[in-house]
């Protein structure tokens, strides 16, 4: 299994390569990628530098152009594709049907990977993307059990890649408009979810209230660290319950499932976190590198302590276990 690692900065990119990434994925500094955060991502010159650095170490560079092009502005997304190819990207990670069509026609020799944002959650959807656009690999959405991942991988007409660690969408990725409902900006259109520009923290006596746009996402008692108000990780009320209706503020950690994922036949494991610092990247990549190498020797790497690296410092195996549903 390949290890595919995130980078939002040159520092993180080098750290990922040095820690044993088989490939690093990154995006341009604009709305063409799904981590369009201030101070993050790569200029054209930086991407060229990154590709060259990866090559000297035998690693590959994947470029994520995985938002949905704004109507009337196809040129921005097409030039991102053209420039990534020109700068030596080993694969393009794409989600939009129109952009996949463009990349397949314009750069047929460059590998196209299907972004998780395309939400291909079954063999028939994957077949559509393979037959239509020559997709070589699909990043599976985080809605599948390990058994379903295995069945899809066995039947799919291309390689599969699955998330192993990091932030966890609880909604099917690429199909969520919660953020734009509250802020006007969404992952699909703007490359952001619950954007920082719309976050406020309000003190009410000893209580800290985290808000996104005009809504309270959570309230934190004195002494409890106030978390980031991601909409689907907030606490809400219904007439029958109160609490984390969608999901607790947890991160995905599939470390214990690596032997099962290997048996499932997946080609690659993906680490989430292009918005995270180089220390996170280095630690997580090192741990998963050791684990994958140990699997090859029929052994098992000792669990590293990554809880402090995760969002909310609690972990889940998410949809990989059927009970999550």
């Amino acid at each position: 299994m390949e290890l595919i690692c995130p980078a939002g900065t040159m520092g993180a990119f080098r750290a990922a390569v040095d820690a044993g990434a088989d490939a690093v994925y990154c995006g341009f500094r604009d709305a063409t990628n799904a981590r369009n955060f201030p101070g993050l991502n790569f200029s054209r010159a930086e991407l060229g530098e990154a590709v060259a650095h990866a090559r000297t170490r035998g690693a590959r560079t994947f470029v994520a152009i995985n938002t949905f092009p704004t109507a009337g502005d196809a040129a921005t997304w097409r030039s991102a594709v053209d420039d990534a190819v020109e700068l030596g990207a080993d694969a393009l990670i794409l989600a939009d049907i129109g952009l996949l069509d463009y990349a397949a026609r314009t750069h047929p020799g460059v590998r196209r990977h299907l972004s998780v944002q395309a939400a291909a959650s079954n063999v028939d959807s994957i077949r559509y993307f393979v037959e239509s656009f020559g997709v070589k690999r699909v990043v599976l959405p985080r809605v599948l059990t390990v058994a379903e991942v295995a069945a899809i991988t066995a039947a799919a007409a291309c390689e599969t890649e699955v998330f192993a660690f990091g932030g966890l969408c609880v909604m099917a990725e690429g199909r969520c408009q919660l953020s734009s409902y509250v802020t006007g900006q969404s992952p699909n259109m703007n490359g952001v979810c619950s954007p920082a520009s719309h976050v406020t923290y309000r003190d009410e006596g000893e209580t800290v209230v985290s808000r996104l746009g005009d809504l309270t996402v959570d309230r934190f008692a004195p002494g409890v660290p106030a978390g980031y108000p991601t909409l689907c990780k907030g606490r809400f009320r219904t007439d029958r319950s109160e609490g984390y209706l969608f999901e607790e503020p947890v991160s995905l950690d599939a470390y214990e499932l690596l032997p099962e994922l290997k048996r499932a036949g997946v080609s690659a494991l993906k680490i989430e976190g292009r918005q995270r610092g180089r220390a996170y990247v280095e630690q997580v990549v090192r741990r998963f590198r050791a684990a994958i190498d140990a699997l090859g020797h029929a052994g098992r790497a000792p669990p590293g302590d990554l809880a402090a690296m995760s969002e909310g410092q609690a972990m889940t195996t998410g949809a990989y276990r059927k009970t999550w549903r």
Partner: peptide, 30 residues
């Protein structure tokens, strides 16, 4: 869902609001 597109491509069909159509290129392709 795209699995529906896979089954329906090539003959007249409808694309529902839960399929991601955000721009003219995707609409044109479909």
């Amino acid at each position: 869902d795209v699995s529906g597109l896979a089954a329906l491509a090539g003959r007249p069909h409808a694309v529902g609001p839960l399929i991601q159509v955000y721009n003219e290129d995707t609409a044109g392709y479909l």
